[in-house]
Amino acid sequence: MTVTADEFRTTIDPDDALARLLESSQKLSYDPQTEVDWDTPLDPTHFGLNPEWSTLYGTDLWDEMTPEQRVTLTRHEVGSIMSTGIWFEMILQQMLLREQYTADVTGSEFQFALTEIADECRHSLMFARACSAMGVPHYVPSRPVVEAARGLKSVAKAEVAYGAILVAEEILDVMQRDWMRGENVLPIVRTTSKIHVVEEARHMKFARHEIREHLEGSSALRRRQSAWVISTAAYVIVKSMVNPAVYEAAGLDKKRALEAAKSNEHHHNLMRLSCVHLMDFLSEVGLLTPAAMRRYRAVHML
């Protein structure tokens, strides 16, 4: 039986979740090298993401931009998001490997964790090739963020590791569900988004399962501490998604563009919408503390 991406959010019994996820990974996985049409020339009128998801959509600056600038901006924005995704997928893989270092290799948890790592390797290669096809440079987070993340990937464990993984995956989920249906979006972005949505649905289910397992019987103090670290990771990820250099690539004044993006309520509302499922889950497991909520509000996730 084929299980859809949406079903992973709601219908799997926790008792057989891992077995079902493994079964689905065998039946519903993609090879981006063959599934994506990499050879067709890019239509110059197609956007990199739905215009409504651009950080400048709905602003006066957007209204002043030429159609070519809008196309260029959205391609660089999605390229920046993909590059940030690759960066975090590298962190994710290291955290998963540490979690499973001495785990029972015959168990479903170990086997699915390694399956997820294999998926993430393919996703990173897929996003890298998409950026290359769009002619987008390698956008990276700031040096302080990169260095701080070395600490996270080295010490994060249990619900903190899986919580950081979950927030990164959930943030993209709603966005990409729109991108994969966007008729005016580049086909390579639509197809890569579809692949990511379907396969990450399993990863999100796994992360939620592991968070619940690790938090069972935990103290209120531990939950507060974990909530703070997870919300800080989310704050950094959101702040790093769209590199300021994308505005210059579109021929815009960077300072003015940053100011417009910072005050863009349309985009802020979309961010909050994309995080509804995440916030519901964090509240359910006791990881939506007042301190964490302030962090999420600071980047318009709540």
Rank of each mutant, 00 (worst) to 15 (best):
H123S: 03
F127V: 12
T102S: 11
M134I: 02
I171Q: 01
D104K: 08
A168N: 03
L92V: 12
V167Q: 05
H138D: 04
E109S: 14
A168L: 03
Y101S: 07
E147R: 09
L152C: 07
A128S: 10
E147C: 04
A168Y: 04
R98W: 00
E99C: 03
Y139G: 01
T115H: 05
F127Q: 12
A113F: 05
K157M: 03
A168D: 03
A161M: 15
M126K: 11
S124A: 14
V145S: 02
C121M: 09
K153T: 05
P144Y: 07
V146H: 11
F112T: 06
A158W: 11
M95T: 00
I117K: 00
L114I: 13
R129S: 12
V145H: 06
E120A: 08
M126P: 08
A118Q: 05
A130I: 09
A168I: 10
K157V: 05
A156W: 10
I171S: 01
V167F: 01
A103P: 12
R129C: 11
V167E: 05
I91R: 04
R143E: 06
G135K: 02
P141W: 02
E169N: 10
R122Y: 02
D119P: 04
A128Q: 14
A128C: 05
D104P: 12
R122M: 12
I91F: 09
E120W: 08
V160G: 11
E99F: 03
A118V: 10
A103K: 12
Q94M: 14
Q100P: 06
Y139C: 00
E116V: 09
P141T: 02
G151W: 00
A113H: 07
G151I: 02
I165S: 06
D119V: 04
V136Q: 01
A128W: 13
M134C: 05
A149V: 13
Y162F: 14
L92I: 15
Y101F: 12
S108N: 15
M134L: 11
V160Q: 13
